[in-house]
Design a protein around this nucleic acid. Structure first.
Lengths: 346, 346
DNA sequence: GACTGTCGCGCAAGCATTTTCGTTGAGATA
DNA sequence: TATCTCAACGAAAATGCTTGCGCGACAGTC
């Protein structure tokens, strides 16, 4: 079995308590004893049993993070930023993927909590806030990111999806598009928000909303781009649009492929804009305009918010950080000279 | 505080042992009692303390995974496949990023092991196998993926990088390239292997190796593409190559941008091939030929290998799985008619 | 020389579980 | 009636660590 504090204590003829105190840099141990313990610990390759420790202290100095997928660069960005922020404060981050499945998500929450994470950060793919309501009642510190539940008060960090949808659509309008289609995402807050922004923009600019130009919501089977291709096929089958706002960049890329395949020109025939501004966006056949969602800032803000919760367990007030997305214009939408062209990478 | 088995036991007037047995579906409890316990547990929102359990059982049914970065789609692929395989066998997966820093990597290993992971899967960014030697001595089950240490016997799953480099280079040769450059990656096994494959291919085809056509190894600062741009600039400054094999796709994309910016045509003036075959590869300005590294298969194989280790603790034999990469030809390298053109996505 | 501090260390209890080995009582068997 | 069996449950020890408190010893103070 693994070496324990007792092994060290016995080898040295001191008590376990002494060893424990040394391991945690406790003040009241003499230099001599301390050094002996340290030496022995190294010699025996001692590794503190953190589970035992957390059992008695009641905290693990670990936080759990659950995202719907690792494959989407947006979440990868968030996670990297989040991890490094947490690490700076001495917390380890345990990452788990729910694979876009609410059942797995709930299982992951239980797993993580069963292992006594001090707090959770979750980009939920669940359709109801029930689980999070429950977590609230149990006073478990957590913050939601990216997606949220309308009407459910909770700690949250994300961007304003409605604004993202509105800005994107308005950009297409500014570029002279008259017949603007929207390929929708999942029927969660993000997808719904962006869609509403789209409608709102049309309305404010006196363009009649045409349901034929909007794809159905996606199903969560991880085949975004495929569904997007089909949606684009359908759009081309009728009277084609002259501008398309896609739920996210991967879907935009898939749709663009279809359009290019059909021999049409981007942006002349159809202008495109996506969402999330992922890397390589500039290197695509049709360098993709997009809404930047400040992924790493989301990670940092979420981490800091959770750290605050962990520090101040008493406060029950819910905080809400909503970032404003920013427009990144590239060639895929640029039908007129624009004043604010962006540099390529990132 | 959280509700424990004792709370349930007291509320019901039974012993803790009884509750424990019910929680683990132990045979030895009557139906009536079992139901009462179950009901009470649900009522009180009881959540088993997995850390306490693992303290006494000595196993946590968790495995830890460490990758150098989440940002690279290759690792995201590996992780998704790995997680789902592990989950099927009842193991939870704790993911950690080392951010391409050996110090963080070692800290992560200690963290994970401190929390008593049953096993580890690691894509190491360390320069020496010392830590892993130590893990071996401590009989900790682990498998290395992607990168390995020459001469160090260990459980490993990866692809043959030398072959990847060779195949990629030979493809360029077959496409009629005479002056083939190589933009190198990090000075780890993967980078070194691909470089050696490159040299080997040249040699076998009677092309003299020209050091001017090879970039220095990258430094691990997470700015791959930037370093790649610079390398490409340098290549263009001299007598330009007519083919470039890049360490990986992101670097190829960056280099291609430089070439395109310089007004050259791909693949006519310069043919390109990358490595890793990442998504969107087909949707780029110059749809990128690449070596597919079977990322999800690596994940699955690594998971299965670790599961075997966990099952059969006694066996000390080291296993080694080396996958053969496959060539995916797209436009970026296609200067002659080719017989095996690939479909687009994935 | 009695008092007060401080320093260095250990005792015992406790954390939430599991595991081994009983114990109890009811019904079956002889 | 005495014995056996078996189902249903519990007592106690153990897991590796932390924490509150206490106890000597030694130095300094008046």
């Amino acid at each position: 079995m693994a070496v324990t504090m007792r092994d060290i204590a016995q080898a040295l003829g001191v008590s376990v308590v002494t060893v424990s105190k040394v391991m945690r840099d406790h003040a009241d141990i003499g230099t001599h004893t301390r050094n002996r313990v340290l030496a022995k610990a190294k010699e025996l390759n001692y590794r503190p049993n953190l589970t035992a420790r957390s059992l008695v202290t009641g905290e693990s100095r670990q936080v759990g993070v659950i995202v719907p997928t690792l494959l989407h660069p947006f979440f990868a960005d968030v996670l990297e930023a989040l991890s490094s922020t947490m690490k700076k404060s001495g917390y380890a981050v345990m990452i788990s993927s729910s694979m876009e499945d609410p059942v797995i998500e709930e299982a992951a929450i239980e797993q993580l909590l069963g292992h006594r994470m001090d707090g959770l950060i979750i980009a939920s793919c669940s359709t109801s806030p029930a689980k999070f309501q429950q977590l609230n009642e149990q006073d478990i510190p957590f913050v939601l990111i990216d997606r949220f539940f309308p009407g459910f008060r909770t700690n949250y960090v994300g961007v304003d999806d409605r604004v993202a949808g509105k800005m994107a659509t308005e950009h297409l309008i500014a570029m002279g598009c008259k017949r603007i289609a929207h390929i929708r995402g999942l029927e969660f807050t993000t997808g719904v928000g962006r869609f509403e922004g789209y409608k709102q923009a049309l309305k404010q600019h006196g363009i009649r909303f045409n349901p034929d130009l909007v794809s159905p919501y996606m199903t969560a089977d991880g085949l975004d781009w495929q569904q997007s291709s089909i949606a684009m096929d359908n759009l081309l089958a009728g009277k084609p649009p002259d501008g398309v706002f896609c739920y996210n960049d991967p879907m935009a890329i898939a749709a663009i492929d279809v359009v290019l395949q059909a021999g049409l020109h981007i942006p002349r025939d159809i202008a495109f804009i996506g969402c999330d501004n992922l890397h390589y966006g500039a290197s695509l056949k049709a360098p993709l305009s997009s809404m930047d969602h400040h992924s790493s800032e989301i990670g940092v803000r979420a981490a800091k918010m959770l750290l605050r919760l962990l520090k101040d367990k008493t406060s029950t007030a819910k905080r809400r950080v909503v970032l404003k997305p920013s427009l990144v214009i590239r060639e895929s939408s640029q039908r007129r000279a624009s004043k604010n062209k962006q540099p390529s990478h990132n």
